[in-house]
């Protein structure tokens, strides 16, 4: 009768054998890489370049906007306001749900859910949660006015031209 060979691996108890550690590590690595591969789809579907409107654009010379003008550039979703030598760009995207607000007697009003704003874009009624943002506006070297929709500025900050 052969003497029983001592098992190479101690299966009993909580003892961390080499085999168990290795299988945990490799399992962790394999499943981890699987999960990371799946998560990479989230990065894939988030576009790095967009093909729509640029957020920084020029809108022409200051002379195109006479004093007192409130010109809504709907394709750009911005309203150019000029008072004397002060000029500013106010967003016309409703802060409620993204409709385009129209210029009204008292300021702006939204056709979708009835939000109303005053001349400076402050909310005066309706469900809008915030005032319309003002965008950074600057003079380019060639004399054009440039609007940067990526940079919001405090309301009442006009550019002097």
């Amino acid at each position: 009768m052969k003497t029983p060979v001592k098992p190479a691996i101690e299966e009993s108890g909580d003892a961390m054998t080499r085999r168990r550690v290795l299988s945990w590590l490799s399992g962790f690595g394999l499943f981890g890489s699987l999960i990371i591969t799946a998560l990479s789809n989230l990065i894939f579907i988030k576009p790095r370049a967009t093909y729509g409107q640029p957020n920084r654009f020029s809108i022409g010379k200051p002379e195109d906007f006479p004093s007192g003008a409130r010109v809504s550039l709907d394709t750009r979703r911005v309203c150019i306001v000029r008072e004397g030598d002060k000029i500013a760009a106010i967003s016309t995207t409703c802060t409620h749900l993204g409709c385009i607000v129209s210029v009204s007697e008292t300021g702006f009003s939204c056709p979708c859910h009835g939000s109303r704003y005053d001349q400076d874009g402050n909310v005066t009624g309706g469900p809008a949660p915030r005032a319309l943002p003002w965008f950074q506006i600057s003079l380019a070297p060639n004399g054009d006015i440039e609007v940067d929709k990526d940079t919001e500025i405090e309301a009442g900050n006009y550019l002097r031209v």
Binding site: P47, T50, Y51, G52, N55, R77
Partner: peptide
């Protein structure tokens, strides 16, 4: 939307 507004994307 694949963009900041509703469009081709």
């Amino acid at each position: 939307l694949g963009d900041s507004t509703v469009g081709q994307e």
